[in-house]
Amino acid sequence: MHITQGQFSFLPPLTDDEIRAQVDYAISKGWALSIEWTHDPHPRNVYWEMWGHPMFEIKDGAAIIFDLAACRKACPNAYIKINAFDNTRGVESMVMSYIVNRPDIEPGFHLIRQEAAGRMVRYTTKPYSTDFPVDTKQES
């Protein structure tokens, strides 16, 4: 299974040069950049762990590539994404987000159905990865 969250999950994995080009685009727009990682890719897991603080008023994209390398080294088997944030009034939200690292094996999700009255079904999406608990703050 291949999780397709983010801007570029349908393309071949981005090389570091390609990541740098996206980072430079965000910098040219004046956006802040951040790196986040997780072992729980549930589609509603909004808060991945932050790898350091978001970088505001960043001048050189090399800083992000450097931090990404450190994050990958510490969490090689995690999902890692790079985000860009626009603080313009009326936006004040994420404007880019793409996955730059994945575990070797992506175990996917179990769809649990709870049958209720009538034909009503209550759905729960459960990531298999959480069957093997790891410290969410620390790579196992």
Binding site: M1, I3, Q5, P43, G108, F109, L111, T125
Partner: peptide, 11 residues
């Protein structure tokens, strides 16, 4: 919708 979410990990 729910099956597709589980297949892709996307909302």
């Amino acid at each position: 919708v729910n099956k597709a979410q589980a297949n892709t990990g996307e909302i």
